[in-house]
Simulated scan of single mutants.
Amino acid sequence: MKLTAVFARNLRLYRQAAGLSQERLAEFAGLDRNYIGKLEREESSPTLDTIEALAVAMQIDAEKMIRRLSPVDVKKL
Results as ranks from 00 to 15, higher is better:
A17P: 02
A8T: 00
L48C: 09
S45H: 10
D61H: 12
I60T: 02
V72F: 09
E40A: 10
V56K: 13
S44C: 10
K75C: 06
T4V: 10
T50H: 04
L39Q: 11
M1F: 10
E63W: 11
D73R: 05
R68E: 07
A5M: 03
I51P: 01
E63P: 02
T4C: 04
S21I: 03
L69T: 01
S45C: 08
D49G: 15
L13T: 07
V56D: 08
T4G: 04
N34W: 11
E40F: 04
E52P: 03
E63A: 05
P46L: 02
A57I: 01
R41E: 09
G30V: 13
Q16G: 11
I66S: 01
I60N: 01
A18M: 01
E43D: 14
L31D: 08
D61M: 14
K75D: 13
I36W: 02
L13H: 08
A57V: 05
F28D: 14
I60Y: 02
M65E: 04
A17C: 09
I66Y: 01
K75L: 12
M1N: 12
A29L: 10
Q22L: 09
A57W: 00
R33D: 07
Q59N: 15
A57Y: 00
K75S: 12
F28A: 12
G19I: 09
T47E: 12
K64I: 01
R12S: 10
R41P: 03
L3R: 11
I60D: 01
D73Y: 01
R68S: 09
R41V: 12
N10G: 02
A62R: 05
R9F: 06
F28S: 14
L20V: 03
D61G: 14
A62Q: 08
A26W: 03
G19Q: 10
G37K: 05
A53F: 03
L20Q: 07
A55F: 00
L11Q: 06
D61C: 04
